[in-house]
Nucleic acid binder design. Structure first.
Lengths: 245, 245
DNA sequence: TTAACTAAGATGCGATACGGATATATGTCA
DNA sequence: TGACATATATCCGTATCGCATCTTAGTTAA
């Protein structure tokens, strides 16, 4: 586009064009570990492997709208933090035909993550194993979470392992200068929960006082005045995320 | 994609699909100011406005390959730092038909920037006016650079103003933790030149000793032993960027 | 030959942020 | 009422940063 000569003589139907899809990395943190929701493929190609939920982009549909639609239809989730991740365009990434896919990152609080699992029986949770391995991030693997044999590496379909790896990397990078961390928490949360989420994503332990200071000094946290319940020890203050400015 | 049922019954030619294009933000720093290379549109739509060089993605062509091809054909540049920026998918972004565009950021050293201008007469340089306006970045405008009447705001075609704004924002964000800054410099450069590039992109002055320390402590700079020439004062040491690790 | 000039490069210092250890507070439970 | 577990606060040594200042090494011109 953006070149007049070519376009003015361009017949929209004259040339074959790649198909355009959107794939979603549905991420959440469960039991202190990052997880993603995957679909098991039942047909060729890559039958038996695990894939990210996705779908084609309609002609009258924004990319963001397509991501929201897939979030709704494939995960039964009305709203979530959605952000575009990267566009994957390798020629042979799908053996059937040329498909370029715009990957989106969807961040779910633990509650929404579980509800999606309950509501959509096709979805399966996977643990994302992140070895810290330095700032750049080491290898990323999706692990099964079954009771009987949890922790086995899952084979991912297409280039979805790359997409998953990029998702966790991006999340890591944005975690402490942006507000993405709060998208993984309920509306009210304690500082410990916030730290747990950060530690899960980063794959390493953080210093508690320093973490508290940083978070409180940022000015994004509003104390609710109430405290968490159900503990057998001193209950922590509940905070709410208040959008900066 | 990635959903078996849908795909197995999907006829590649059955549904209309968006066209897929790549647009390039060709950025460089000239005279201490960030600039971009634009094409003046001569036909409708947006005739007379300025546009980013771009083109459609071929069926057997990677997105990166398409970006490289456009860099070569439209700017006459064989190699440059190229990175994917964002994919723009608003439905009405092009009035003729639905075009989704993957925007790429191309970083050119001053030399390549000028050579592209000389070799491709259609290209025109624009100054990107960045008002610092806080960390998030204020409004971004493309300004003309003509001798007679420089500094006038240029009207950009399509959503290319958004793309340009995102490009400078992305560059800013990555500037001091990544190596993108070096892509805007020749192979050998002085610390002052490096600082000038950073200041141009950030739109604000930086502290000299602190900047030197940070850059040298990072360990990415290798002294060449030789010094810059042509100055009437103490010549500065020339450094070379040595890829970390 | 030498002094003025200019920017490179180095040094010193106060403020700030951070990791880490430790101390105190506050709830539950026996 | 006291043990217990965790939240919350405080203290301190260290690394980093902004900033001012000083020194160095070239050219230029008297």
């Amino acid at each position: 586009m953006s070149e007049a000569e070519f376009l003015s003589t361009y017949d929209p139907a004259a040339y074959e064009r790649p198909a355009l899809a959107v794939d979603l990395v549905l991420m959440g943190v469960r039991d202190g570990r990052p997880g993603a929701l995957l679909l098991k493929r039942t047909e060729h190609p890559h039958a038996g492997r695990w894939a990210l939920p996705g779908g084609f982009v309609g002609l009258d549909e924004t990319l963001d709208a397509a991501a929201e639609r897939i979030l709704r239809d494939k995960a039964g989730i009305a709203r979530a933090h959605l952000e575009q991740l990267y566009t994957f365009g390798a020629v042979e990434r799908d053996p059937r035909m040329r498909i370029v896919s715009v990957a989106y990152l969807a961040l779910l609080p633990e509650r929404a993550f579980s509800e999606a699992l309950d509501g959509m029986p096709e979805l399966s949770p996977a643990v994302i194993a992140v070895s810290w391995a330095g700032e750049a991030g080491g290898p990323v693997a999706a692990l099964s979470t079954g009771r009987r044999a949890g922790g086995e590496p899952l084979g991912l379909a297409f280039d979805h392992a790359d997409i998953l790896a990029l998702a966790i990397l991006r999340l890591r990078g944005k975690l402490d200068y942006s507000d993405v961390g709060f998208a993984l928490l309920p509306e009210q949360f304690t500082l410990r929960q916030l730290q747990d989420v950060h530690e899960a994503i980063l794959g390493k332990a953080l210093n508690k006082p320093a973490f508290r200071r940083r978070m409180l000094d940022r000015g994004w946290l509003e104390p609710t005045g109430s405290r968490e319940g159900g503990t057998s020890f001193r209950p922590a203050e509940l905070y709410r995320f208040r959008r900066p400015r």
